[in-house]
């Protein structure tokens, strides 16, 4: 690991779960272990700069996770406090989503994104022009290298009769995007609107390979 390179950890796991009360967020403690000793040395220097990215499958089934503080060292691992809540109350697991989280549930990764590794506006534009990078035609790029794009005019919902066993397989990592692609229903949405304090699942076209 180099401090000027982008880095991601292995998947972290739920360590403890504090039951949600009165529609409050679920309080989770997440744990991350290093791959090897060199990674551990890197963590000791840079862990305060790490950010968390949630597993996309959890987001796709309507669960949001917020991590207000950076991870902290706890013995030979990093610990991160998280708050989980459901952003789409129409999902079939709205009544039992909190019970999907148990010790050992995979939750996502930590990442380190140093400014030195970020592409500039000119580098992104050159990559697009040479077809190294393909992004939607509707994109705008600002001078700070931020690429703005508009999602498709669609929204996705889960099949309303999706059973608990299937939802549990998605939540605990035994099933992922291949299954999700089969149990999502696509709806045209023009315009695409998002009500206050809710979320939508939508899509875009992107070719990063």
């Amino acid at each position: 690991m180099q401090p000027d390179q982008f880095w991601t950890s292995q998947d972290g796991q739920v360590l403890t779960v504090q039951a949600a009360k009165n529609d409050k967020p679920l309080q989770l403690t997440l744990a991350f272990w290093p791959r090897d000793s060199s990674e551990w040395e890197f963590w000791q220097k840079h862990h305060a700069e790490f950010k968390f990215t949630e597993r996309s499958t959890l987001a796709r089934i309507g669960i949001e996770m917020l991590t207000p503080n950076p991870p902290r060292i706890d013995g030979n691992r990093l610990i991160l406090d998280a708050e989980a809540f459901i952003y789409d109350t129409t999902v079939p697991h709205a009544d039992y989503w909190a019970k999907l989280f148990r010790p050992g549930t995979p939750v996502g990764r930590l990442y380190f994104a140093p400014a030195e590794a970020k592409l500039t506006t000119d580098e992104i534009w050159q990559a697009i022009r040479s077809n190294t990078l393909k992004l939607p035609n509707t994109l705008s790029i600002d001078r700070d290298g931020r690429v703005f794009l508009t999602p498709h005019n669609v929204r996705y919902t889960l099949k309303p009769d999706l059973d608990r066993e299937t939802i549990s397989r998605l939540a605990n990592g035994l099933a992922g995007r291949n299954l999700l692609d089969k149990v999502q229903i696509r709806h045209a949405a023009t315009p695409l609107t998002i009500d206050p304090h809710t979320g939508v699942l939508t899509s875009c076209s992107m070719y990063l390979k």
Partner: peptide
């Protein structure tokens, strides 16, 4: 890689959002 990349967008405000836009930053892979 494809035409069906999922985006999960949350509106934390008290007003609706119409036709949302997202922004990304691109980093070199190690």
């Amino acid at each position: 890689f494809g035409t069906n990349i999922m985006l999960e967008i949350y509106n934390p405000g008290d007003q609706p959002v119409v036709n949302p836009m997202v922004s990304v930053e691109v980093f070199r892979a190690p």
